[in-house]
Design a protein around this nucleic acid. Structure first.
Length: 189
DNA sequence: AATGGTCACAACCGCCAGTTC
DNA sequence: GGAACTGGCGGTTGTGACCAT
């Protein structure tokens, strides 16, 4: 195990590695990710294999741009759930948590005026500039709008064509995914 | 055409919770 | 009960592509 960890390769996957991983999953199914390097000889960690499969190789994963409906859904669910990408992705068929997270960080945060602190930091370090930060809006501020979203969501029942047309805040809060802390934070508003 | 800045996205890292022994 | 292992998650980084100068 440690030997595999030590010599595990990093960086982008090539077609051959994808093929090995795909064949393994087809044969053995998912789970037991740490067995994959041992069984297949892949020089990747179990974690890396899992991530590659979940985010890229899974047959039902959608590629390409987010549709308007998906975008709308991400905005609404993010307002409701915050940065719980896996929960959000779970409500958007064919999209992974990584896709949703990237989409939010690159497109929506910009569109909605939520400044990406990471990018800000990068920009700042590259340009050594100061005195900026206008319009900064943290996601916690989004949560402050939750009350409004709550009403809106219930009103239109996510009027879109996905597989959960009747989702409501109640559904989310009673789902097994909804944690106690979320109950507290949501109903405290 | 060359160069530097920015964007978009795949992948890694660190932490945590659940499971097994 | 607790240590070790494993899988999952969110945050962050690395890098190729694209764009502006």
């Amino acid at each position: 195990m440690e030997a595999y960890e030590n010599e595990s390769k990093k960086g982008f996957w090539n077609a051959e590695e994808d093929s090995v991983l795909t064949n393994y999953v087809k044969k053995h199914g998912t789970g037991k990710w740490n067995r994959i390097p041992k069984v297949t000889g892949l020089k990747r960690s179990g974690k890396s294999c899992r991530l590659r499969w979940m985010n890229y190789l899974t047959p039902d994963v959608k590629r390409g741009e987010f549709s308007e409906e998906e975008e709308d859904l991400v905005v609404r669910l993010h307002s409701l759930l915050g940065n719980r990408w896996s929960l959000i992705a779970g409500r958007i068929p064919g999209r992974t948590d990584n896709q949703v997270k990237n989409f939010w960080n690159t497109h929506l945060s910009k569109k909605l005026g939520v400044v990406d602190k990471k990018k800000k930091k990068r920009k700042a370090s590259s340009k050594e500039r100061s005195g900026e930060g206008d319009g900064e809006k943290l996601w916690s501020d989004d949560l402050m709008e939750l009350g409004n979203m709550h009403e809106e969501i219930i009103r239109d029942d996510f009027g879109c064509s996905f597989s959960f047309p009747n989702i409501s805040v109640f559904d989310l809060c009673t789902s097994p995914y909804c944690t106690q802390s979320f109950h507290h934070s949501f109903f405290a508003l």
